[in-house]
Design a protein around this nucleic acid. Sequence first.
DNA 1: AAAATAATCGAATATAGATTTAATTATATC
DNA 2: GATATAATTAAATCTATATTCGATTATTTT
Lengths: 213, 213
Amino acid sequence: MARKPADQSVNRETILHAAADVLRRNGYEATTMKDIASEVNLTAASLYHHFRNKDALLLAVLEGGLDHAISQIEPVVQSNKTPTEKLHEMARLHVLTLTSNTAVGAAMIFEIRPLMNLKADGRNGAHSYSDDFITKRDAFFQRREYFELLFRQVVKDGMTTGEFREVDIPIYTKSIIGANNWVAVWYKEGGRLSGQEIAELIADGAIRAVKSD
Amino acid sequence: MARKPADQSVNRETILHAAADVLRRNGYEATTMKDIASEVNLTAASLYHHFRNKDALLLAVLEGGLDHAISQIEPVVQSNKTPTEKLHEMARLHVLTLTSNTAVGAAMIFEIRPLMNLKADGRNGAHSYSDDFITKRDAFFQRREYFELLFRQVVKDGMTTGEFREVDIPIYTKSIIGANNWVAVWYKEGGRLSGQEIAELIADGAIRAVKSD
DNA sequence: AAAATAATCGAATATAGATTTAATTATATC
DNA sequence: GATATAATTAAATCTATATTCGATTATTTT
């Protein structure tokens, strides 16, 4: 057996989905190429036809997740709603994103640290990361800051219009995002509340925390 | 060289502190015994004199962190303050715990998943976890639930007294804890605000989210 | 229907990293 | 001071991966 017939063949997207799933279960470091490969009925070796290496594969998963989240939030910021409405909708969509794709959601949280603090190898014989990987990693973090910036902007606008009280913008933005992100940690499908309901409740709380008296 | 003179000798506590630090930087999976050993000028082999294995060592760090957090929160719950005061103080102390010990704080977040989803080895030749480890792991999670329960109880009390609006207790508790926990992700010493200030601000937000109108 | 390209695999390579073992030296106890 | 125990190490072991390589078969292009 070598190349599989067309209908059993696997494409990049399929691999990314599977990888996200494995990542959610095991985390960055504990995820093996074999784990991912098995998920799509390939061997580890075959993955290297689709991705340069493990780093590249896993980073691609995170990029996809972040892009999706941003694509949800961005239009809301640009709409002509009030800051209150915007913030509510943004928080709601953020949580919804996390509940509907827990794989990516959890990755967005748990893989940050391994990515931030790349093992300072290089001296010892360990694999040092490719330039390409570092570049993409940095771009990922910039985009992640942009995501947060979108929230900050709306909080700021709300303070300007007087809808929001005078809060410390970075702190409150991070609090809101933190509360949202935490959902990815505990949410399990089939629980008492739907993703929709949870998103709504959490968004309500976010607004309450910043609303003027 | 074999046994070092008394003043260069290392004890269990010292190792745990160092381990917490390495853990914060690298995370559970990426932390090697050598990493920890170097931090206290030992060899990896020496660690096995103090701890049965890597699992036991790392779990000990988490246990210590959680115990400390609980020891901070528990007295507040048992005090005769109002629920509003209690919740504020609990959130404040929780955040303060995280900023003053970021190592443990981050561990409490990032090591949950690797611990929850232990690689389902056993079939293949991989090391399966010792019974002792599993037992301690489970105890850790139970204690972690207890920590959350303390918050839930106060939220519930606040609803009873009417100080808090009718919120969904689990969701709001998790939101508050999530916002708090997130601090461990972004907090860096020497930033614009002190841990004290940050803790205060976040606690304010937590109260606002649940306060009655 | 050749020729080129894509997708896959088994097997080989290389290595890091947990754990074990046996030896060595420092403290403690008697 | 002799004996036991504690702390440490270097070296060996063993295994799980990541990654590479060459061969093989399926599509696609010409």
